[in-house]
Amino acid sequence: MKQVFTRPESLKDVPTHFCPGCNHGTVHRLVGEAIDDLGLRSETIGVASVGCSVFLYGYFDIDVIEAPHGRAPAVATGAKRARPDRIVFTYQGDGDLAAIGMSEIIHSANRGEDITVIFVNNTTYGMTGGQMAPTTLPGQKTSTSPYGRDVSKDGAPFKMAELLAGLDGVAFSARVSLDSPKNVLMAKKLIKTAFQYQVEKKGFSFIEALSSCPTNWGMSPLAANQRVTDEMVPYFPLGTYKNRADL
């Protein structure tokens, strides 16, 4: 019998600490599949960030550097400049990338660093217990926005895929979602494209993955998944915002 589903070689055979219904595990898997499919496992360096994705080294069977909060793109820049023949990617959450690390992500993207950034947007700080994030939706209640995000005071959520697409150094910028099998397949394809662009030294590649956070949203996994479809996707439209191949 032909085996059609197996663990990617780039991932370790261990259970994760992620909550039920969280999409981090799915994104890990898709990144692992992309690395396997492109045959990059032996030459890839991952840069972990601070947040729920901090244990990257525990799940990926590749070399990993753990970066300070928000600094993963700067750390990845250093690693890539030191070893330009390696594949370097960061894996960051919304607080890490779009709040404390905004300077690092914008400048790395603008320099066109040959790195891939996987950005998991779940509209909240998951690890610290569900505080307001730079991508928290208008009106969304969190532990630090108990009356709902007030756009007049907190500003509107950052749309990172669109924002980075406007920079000349960016070769590829896309937003994907994991709320349906179809969207997961699309995510797999675009994540692979992002890594492929790095292999071809086309410049900075960026994937924003919309993700659920049932625990901090106070929802069941199914209800949280439905929220991604009903509330997040309309605010953060899916699609490819920049593709150097199109230019």
Partner: peptide, 20 residues
């Protein structure tokens, strides 16, 4: 590389040094 900030610079140093 002229970094965007001192914070960027030290973290680039961290990355390059981690790469050996």
């Amino acid at each position: 590389l002229q970094a965007e900030s001192e914070i960027g610079a030290i973290n680039m140093l961290l990355g390059a040094s981690a790469a050996g």
